[in-house]
């Protein structure tokens, strides 16, 4: 059933986008986009290590491994920055490349046992996701990736429901947040955990780089035109879902990678917004400049 697969794929890509939009909005506002990139790479080590330690590819093991390594990445980065007195971006770069390299080496060393390779980590292949289904009580309930992502998306919404106010306050002004008794550290590490979980759940389907795209691109697109955090979140989710749908058809039409097409469409939304939408768009500002020039040119009455 071709159309059934299509629906599953679009649903999976949409969930990646929605989850990415939620964590992405806060990462972007906290200027930590590259930490998202870092975590999405270093979780590879988490997955491999968890698998080698437990010989299990079960979902909870994978999520716990990834979650721990995500926290490790955030903590190590912070350690190098504070104690090692290294620039923040440099700390990020040192840590994630190291953990990613470790992951790749482990995969090479245990090539026979680990069912993962660099390529699938970078690209992912969402087209195959519908075939890896979950059977519960003899009943095929659909793709595994879908259910995992649904769970992670629910967790992200839970975080949003419970914590949108402290998260917003911490993102806006950590000093003020601390002054009214909000624990900046707690919400930071909670967010990092959710970034790790989102990444690892999306891994199989869309690959590391495209998770990064879904975390930063819709959130930044919405950031350019939003007046409120709520608007930014809704806008980012909207862009993400629209990218998932359009991306799927673009890939089907041109016969290319679906995940890449979704990210490309998201990039398209970003560029269009940058150029044409809102008061700060390139177009609006060009118009304003022209008007100013004209006003300057016409002699005062």
């Amino acid at each position: 059933m071709y159309w059934m697969d299509a629906i599953w794929i679009i649903a999976i890509a949409s969930l990646v986008g929605i989850s990415g939009a939620i964590v992405g909005a806060f990462l972007v506002l906290r200027r930590m986009s590259m930490l998202g990139d870092a975590i999405s790479h270093s979780v590879l080590f988490g997955i491999v290590a968890a698998f080698l330690l437990t010989s299990s590819r079960s979902v909870p093991v994978m999520l716990i491994g990834a979650g721990l390594v995500g926290l490790l990445t955030a903590w190590l980065t912070d350690f190098l920055h504070r104690r090692g007195q290294l620039q923040e971006d440099a700390s990020i770069g040192v840590v994630f490349t190291w953990l990613f390299a470790l992951g790749v080496i482990l995969i090479a060393a245990f090539a026979g046992q680990v069912d993962l390779d660099q390529e699938c980590v970078l690209y992912g292949e969402i087209a195959f996701a519908p075939f890896d289904t979950w059977v519960v009580g003899g009943q095929d309930i659909g793709p595994r990736a879908f259910w995992i992502l649904l769970g992670v998306t629910a967790l992200n919404f839970l975080m949003l429901a419970v914590g949108h106010r402290p998260l917003k306050t911490v993102a806006f002004s950590p000093a003020f947040a601390a002054s009214i008794g909000i624990s900046v550290t707690f919400w930071h590490y909670l967010l990092m955990s959710m970034v790790s979980l989102t990444t690892v759940a999306s891994f199989d389907a869309v690959g590391a780089i495209l998770v990064v795209a879904m975390i930063v691109v819709p959130a930044n697109t919405a950031f350019m035109v939003s007046k409120s955090l709520k608007g930014m979140l809704v806008g980012a989710m909207g862009v993400a879902v629209a990218s998932a749908v359009l991306g799927y058809f673009l890939a089907a039409w041109l016969n290319g990678s679906i995940a890449a097409a979704v990210a490309m469409v998201a990039g398209g939304f970003f560029v269009v917004t940058l150029l044409f939408v809102g008061r700060d768009s390139v177009l609006a500002r060009a118009r304003q400049r022209r008007r100013q020039r004209q006003q300057a040119a016409t002699p005062a009455a």
Binding site: V28, R31, M32, S33, M34, G36, D37, D89, L122, Y123, G207, I209, L210, V212, A213, I215, V216, V217, N220, F223, M224, A251, L254, G256, S257, A259, A260, A261, V262, A263, M264, A266, G267, F270, L274, D280
Partner: peptide, 22 residues
């Protein structure tokens, strides 16, 4: 633009890569 430096890096990185991957 209003885009912050870290986001600029991440956007270019991921969108360019997506094009290439496609």
């Amino acid at each position: 633009t209003r885009i912050k430096p870290d986001s600029a890096l991440a956007i270019v990185l991921s969108v360019f890569f997506a094009f290439g991957a496609f």
